[in-house]
Nucleic acid binder design. Structure first.
Length: 839
RNA sequence: GCCUCUGUGGCGGAAUUGGUAGACGCGCUCGACUCAAAAUCGAGUUUCUUACGAAGUGCCGGUUCGAGUCCGGCCAGAGGUACCA
């Protein structure tokens, strides 16, 4: 009974050191305990840890610590997704080397993570920019090349004609380069691709086995892969050539009123060769960015080629347009346009005055109902369609495909929305693609004994463009095949490749190969993967593909890397701004004095506008630095805040009041822990029931990552223990609370455990067991409704018979008043829950 | 544009998955302690109504004895949209 305050400034570091010295969280692959691999998405070392990281890693940490207390050998590693564009941007803006900048950031962020007390196995740490990592990645890439899963083809990039450089999509703002302001052009380059489409069917069907993934992520991936069946057929051009098109709506074939091809379709190209207006139009289509969102929302534009095609059934002549909304990458790059039943075609037809026939209606009687101002893409029956009239959409699809196949002019086709994965980046700070271009031998992989192909250190970022391309010596090498003069590939790999196998490298890190197969078999798949929902499609699909590809070439024995996935929400904060000289200037929470009435700027006392609660971001300055919060409240209060209130899959609004409340709760628990008395005697039945109910419920809460629920239970048990008189039960509850809170507030729990005189570390203690016999309540509250409205409640013994409950309900004065003598038609009794009297 | 998700008091949210809406926390109000403040402890806190009571889970409609939960249609916000990670 000495210290009345818990002092995190001394305790946090003391226990962090104790865990490190004891090697508490180093995973032992020779252990005979059951294994558990808990993994959070590793961070990009952008500078400092932000609250989003803290939230993500706290969740994983609670699970990892809990699993350890439940007797598992836990692998909980950490590393760095260290290649990427921000390092090059920093190099350009600040004149630093991307490598140095990245290493500095890693050092800072690692020390920040250590201050939070995460139960991480730091012995397995690595960064993807380590040549020891990316060299193995190069070897795997060559393996995939040799297995026929890598190829090169022409693909479009965003080209900044002023900076003479390739831009990322996020660097294109309103169709203009973010630095130069120049209008961006689409330009074709020869690039490297991975054949993810070869696995489309597997990646799709594999989703159904991922029972512990969020339904929404599986749905998003399913839609992204986009399996569709339709009809591929060829139109006969008026000049005798044929034009293959693909449609997912063959049923609407009688509604086709024109045909459209992509700007880079061979037909468009050949028209442009003879018609400079067409060529101008194609140039126009090259303006602007390459993203789907831009292409889809851009105004629909077309050019009438003057060529016609013959409709396969009606023989009618349909005009052929070059259109900016047709994608060369999907289907055949040419479509039959059915304006009545596709919104894009509708917009286009409206603009160019083309007919919009109706071929699907709600009923045959509505065959000639005009369209409102939009297309009708839904179900219905076919109309104005000759032999299809009266058929349902699905039957009509089958009928048209059958007739096309019979007639030999088309066939049913499965088409995927998924495209092959373009991995070429015309940038420095990434994994060099390990190939050599030789005039005599073509593309030759770098021999594996010459890996890694390392990045040259002496590069400059004073001019835009790829430093590898303009480096004086780096790319000049002899051909490994013929020995003649040759050049290295200067593209580097997409950083999503780096993050597609890092979880294998955490399991083992041999020098001579990417991973040790036995070690990987021991630890993988990851039991629980945790990260942001923003990675639902790309990262997670690429990692699934890469794992399957390695399985396919015999390097792995499993196809799915992540058995369970959890996607957590963002940390948000309100924004503070005011108009200054005609524009909004944002201020950080640390510069603002916020009361319950409003906010003022500390510097000059001026009024500040409180904006919406949005994701913490540097540009809006609504960020809170974890270090500053730890300085004030200690690591445990921050961890507790991250777990409190908001369900983990939802956004968490940061608030000053909230963290202060967490700081107070740490002290409140400390005071309770301080009252632990090993010698107390006597039994406290209600408290025992509460304790065992809490223990039983918390296991389920933590295993389903419902941390906010376990936090609420801790509050309830704490409240009950505080109010209870000293007893053996109360001491049991306090000791149990130390263990129940250990995964969440480990520093506080260790300190209390130690002071109470328990041996060893609470981090290595067993999770408390619950006694099922103590869970059962003997009385329940029954709701009594009249016609579904609550009129009274009554207390009944648990398991009371239906007849007894009905009798008790009818005896209630309040119920009788509501009934007011009305005739009772029915009485519904749900045992232990409610009685509903229907009149 | 398209795909996916979310919407409950002043705020974050809970609700045994169709059965007492608002657990728990924050904030606020009142009280105790204190010379005073902080800390701590206790009581109260969906809205309307003096009360009886009524309304209420983004909006409109439906199914049901009973809907926050299921169905249909909207609205708003968020994430993704293939070179941000």
């Amino acid at each position: 009974m000495s210290d009345t305050r818990f002092d995190p400034s001394t305790a946090d570091g003391r226990w962090q050191l104790a865990w490190e010295q004891a090697g508490t969280f180093a995973a032992d692959s020779n252990s005979d305990r059951p294994k558990s691999y808990v993994l959070e998405m590793f961070p990009y070392p952008s500078g400092r840890i932000h609250m989003g990281h803290v939230r993500n890693y706290t969740m994983g940490d609670v699970l990892a610590r809990y699993k350890k207390m439940r007797g598992f050998e836990v692998l909980h590693p950490m590393g760095w997704d260290a290649f990427g564009m921000p390092a090059e941007n920093a190099a350009m803006e600040k004149g630093v080397h991307p490598g140095g900048w990245t290493r500095d950031n890693i050092a800072t962020m690692k020390s920040q993570l250590k201050r939070i007390g995460f139960a991480l196995d730091w012995t397995r740490e690595f960064a993807t920019c380590d040549p020891e990592y990316y060299g193995h990645e190069q070897a795997l890439f060559i393996d995939l090349y040799e297995a026929g899963l890598v190829y090169r083809k022409q693909a479009e990039v965003n080209w900044d004609p002023v900076d003479m450089t390739v831009l990322a999509n996020e660097q294109v703002i309103d169709g203009k380069g973010w630095r130069s302001g120049a209008e961006v052009e689409k330009r074709k380059l020869n690039q490297w691709f991975l054949k993810i489409t070869q696995f489309a069917e597997e990646l799709l069907s594999g989703l159904y086995a991922l029972k512990d993934w969020p339904e929404k992520v599986r749905l998003m991936q399913e839609n992204w892969i986009g399996k569709s069946s339709g009809l591929e057929f060829s139109f006969e051009l008026t000049n005798g050539d044929s034009l293959p098109v693909y449609t997912t709506r063959p049923d609407t074939i009688f509604g086709a009123s024109f045909v459209a091809v992509a700007a880079d379709h061979p037909l468009a190209q050949s028209v442009a060769a003879q018609n400079c207006d067409a060529a101008k139009f194609i140039d126009l289509c090259k303006k602007g960015g390459t993203t789907a969102a831009e292409l889809e929302t851009a105004e629909k534009l077309g050019f009438d080629t003057g060529i016609g095609v013959k409709h396969p059934f009606t023989g009618a002549n349909l005009p052929v347009y070059i259109a900016n909304f047709v994608l060369m990458d999907y289907g055949t790059g040419a479509i039959m346009a059915v304006p009545g039943h596709d919104q894009r075609d509708f917009d286009f037809a409206t603009k160019y005055g083309l007919p919009i026939p109706r071929v699907v209606a709600r009923s045959v009687e509505e065959a000639n109902v005009p369209f409102a101002c939009e297309a009708e893409a839904g179900d219905g029956v076919l109309v104005n369609s000759d032999f299809l009239d009266g058929m349902e959409v699905e039957d009509a699809k089958r009928e048209v495909i059958a007739r096309a196949e019979q007639g030999g002019w088309g066939q049913g086709q499965t088409v995927w929305r998924l495209r092959d994965w373009g991995v070429s980046r015309q940038r420095y700070w990434g994994t060099p693609i390990p190939f050599i271009h030789c005039d005599a031998c073509g593309v030759v992989p770098v021999p594996k004994d010459q890996l890694p192909v390392t990045l040259p250190e002496d590069v400059d970022f004073k001019t835009p463009g790829n430093p590898l391309l303009r480096h004086p010596t780096w790319k000049h090498v002899d051909c490994p095949s013929c020995g003649g003069k040759a050049e290295r590939e200067t593209d580097t790999l997409d950083t999503f490749v780096d993050s597609s196998w890092y979880f294998l490298r955490f399991a083992s890190q041999p020098d001579d190969q990417p991973f040790d197969r036995d070690e990987v078999a021991k630890w993988l798949p990851v039991e629980q993967y945790i990260g942001g929902i923003e990675h639902a499609i790309l990262h997670l699909l690429y990692a699934r593909f890469w794992t399957r590809a390695l399985c396919h070439i015999g390097k792995l024995d499993f196809a799915e890397p992540f058995a369970a996935l959890f996607t957590q929400g963002m940390v948000t904060h309100e924004t503070y701004s005011r108009r200054e000289n005609g524009r909004d200037v944002f201020y950080s929470p640390s510069e603002v004095d916020r009361t319950s009435h409003g906010a003022t700027l500390m510097a000059d006392g001026g009024t500040i506008d409180i904006g919406r609660v949005i994701k913490m971001s540097k540009s809006k300055k609504n960020v809170v630095d974890p270090d500053a919060i730890i300085d004030r409240f200690g690591a445990d209060a921050v961890r507790w805040f991250m777990l409190s209130d908001s369900p983990p899959e939802r956004d968490l609004p940061w608030s000053e009041a909230g963290i202060e409340g967490c700081g107070r709760f740490v002290q409140r628990l400390w005071r309770l822990f301080d009252q632990y008395d090993a010698g107390a005697e006597g039994e406290d039945k209600p408290l025992a029931r509460k304790l065992h109910q809490t223990i039983a419920a918390m296991a389920g809460d933590i295993e389903s990552l419902g941390f906010n629920k376990s936090v609420a239970r801790i509050y309830e048990l704490t409240g009950a223990a505080e109010k209870a008189a000293p007893s053996a039960t109360r001491s049991e509850a306090i000791a149990a609370l130390m263990r129940l809170t250990a995964p969440m507030m480990p520093h506080l729990a260790e300190e209390a455990w130690h002071r109470a005189g328990f041996p060893g570390l609470v981090s290595e203690a067993d999770w408390p067991a619950h006694d099922p016999a103590l869970l059962v309540e003997d009385e329940v509250t029954i709701a009594v409704q009249v016609k579904g409205k609550l009129r009274d409640t009554l207390t009944a013994p648990k398991g009371a018979a239906k007849e007894m409950l009905e009798e008790m309900a009818l005896a209630s004065a309040k119920v009788q008043r509501s009934l007011d003598g009305a005739e009772i038609r029915k009485v519904i009794v749900v045992p232990d829950r409610l009685v509903n009297i229907v009149i």
